[in-house]
Nucleic acid binder design. Structure first.
Lengths: 262, 262
DNA sequence: TAGTGGTCTAGACCACACC
DNA sequence: GTGTGGTCTAGACCACTAT
């Protein structure tokens, strides 16, 4: 068993009211923040920490659990505990749905990702007709049945986002929108060809901890929240023609918006 | 010790590969999701769960720790574990900085909150000159020193947001902007009076788990992420005149934006 | 095979809330 | 005082990774 380099971690203060496992977590957190453990570096093993602090393994594990909950570390069974690397984030610009970005043969996600030097993938593509939920109905203005397009997006092999688009059946049924591949420019281009010229989009942004199925689908490290984004597309008649419900790994994205001052 | 109503929680599957504490967490999560425990309701105590499942207290506590990490429960020392109530969220509309909302005698936060039936407060107000960080300098276009305006917002006594505004000293020094109370319409109104007519704002939105000091300041329950929002205000000359760095309790807000289609 | 983290037992004492 | 959750001990066995 290797030992911990001197000066990296201090000693506990037995007179403190702060629980031992919190003090240990504080010291590890500080060491990470100050770069004494760099991104991707391995923290001391549990047995090293047990020896260093003179506490039992359970206490040390509680401390490590705090860091895990804060998203600072990833724990790999049989290997060790590592400082979680901060992956490069993808910036979603406020003009990402502008018509001028739509004249490509590829989907917007693919174009943007390749421009950023990443390897994009789309999988789990599923298109089917469904009964609408009350929330989707309210946003679409009372469609009982909808066309649902589900997919998952990956960057460099890592899942980053799931999305479900809901469209009223009277618009989408028996059109290219109901095909797995809707063609160049995506469903927004098809909607405009079908006479629904797009006017604007509304997006609602929330953040929360993921549900267990989201952890699985997005392969989320523990301590990583999700951004929940619901976008509604309106045509020039003021009709809601699509609702897109998106769940994104929060460590993969930064959203950018522009707001008018007037 | 009361006992658990029959049918609410099942039994463990000893043949399953899934760890006992995960199975217990699954059953409690399902019971919460299905409304068998309602918002604010008390879950069975640890000793009740120990008896029900025939596992030790440590195993039961691990299960409860999962739910806590998911933000599903709040744990109150000496009282019990409760289903976390979903507080009403405050909707931040995309036109919230429009000039027409600025002609009030009160701050925008106060006006909106009162309209929504909440009791708003602003505290921890602090205004001072500071050295700029590299990030703020880059956003403002190289101001070495800045005026920093720090404050914390509360709704009905609960802290929901901290914000720091940074303004270049050559704009803000010796103006009402440097006063604790900048007057009606806030600093944006003062900026326009000083000749910096506002053109637009840019916002960057991220989500992450809070740092320990943010947990304290915002009194965050465990399992609640924060929304980190950085807004830059530009005047009609294209100059960045303010950067506002905001950390919001993610369970208190939903952000709404409008995007153009053209 | 050795080292790592994951799960679990069976206790103990403490701090806090409520009656 | 009783019941609650918070902290901690001192073990045990297992599963996974690396060599």
């Amino acid at each position: 068993m290797a030992s911990i380099p001197p000066g990296v971690l201090g000693a506990l203060d037995p007179t403190s009211d702060r629980a031992a496992f919190r003090q240990i977590a504080d010291q590890l957190r500080e060491a990470i923040d100050k770069g004494r453990f760099k991104e991707g570096a391995k923290l001391p093993s549990e047995s090293e920490l047990v020896e260093h602090y003179g506490k039992t393994r359970m206490t040390v594990r509680n401390a490590l659990g705090i860091l895990q909950g804060e998203g600072l570390t990833v724990h790999e069974h049989g290997r060790g505990v590592f400082v979680r690397p901060r992956p490069p984030v993808k910036r979603l610009a406020s003009d990402r749905f502008a018509r001028r970005h739509r004249d490509q043969g590829k989907a917007a996600f693919v174009v943007e990702a390749e421009a950023a030097g990443s390897r994009p993938e789309v999988d789990s593509l599923e298109v089917r007709e469904e009964r609408s939920t009350p929330d989707i109905s309210a946003r679409l203005g009372s469609a009982r049945k909808v066309l649902a397009r589900r997919r998952r997006y990956l960057l460099d092999g890592k899942p980053v986002e799931t999305a479900v688009s809901y469209l009223p059946l009277d618009i989408a049924r028996n059109t290219p929108i109901a095909e797995p591949n809707p063609g160049p420019g995506g469903i927004y281009a098809r909607l405009e060809e079908l006479g629904h010229e797009l006017d604007h989009f509304e997006e609602e942004v929330r953040a929360r901890m993921p549900a267990p199925d989201e952890v699985k689908t997005l392969r989320l490290a523990s301590g990583v929240p999700v951004i929940h984004l619901v976008r509604t597309a309106y045509d020039t008649d003021g009709r809601a023609v699509e609702v897109c419900d998106t769940v994104m790994s929060a460590d993969a994205y930064v959203l950018a918006y522009q707001l008018p001052a007037s």
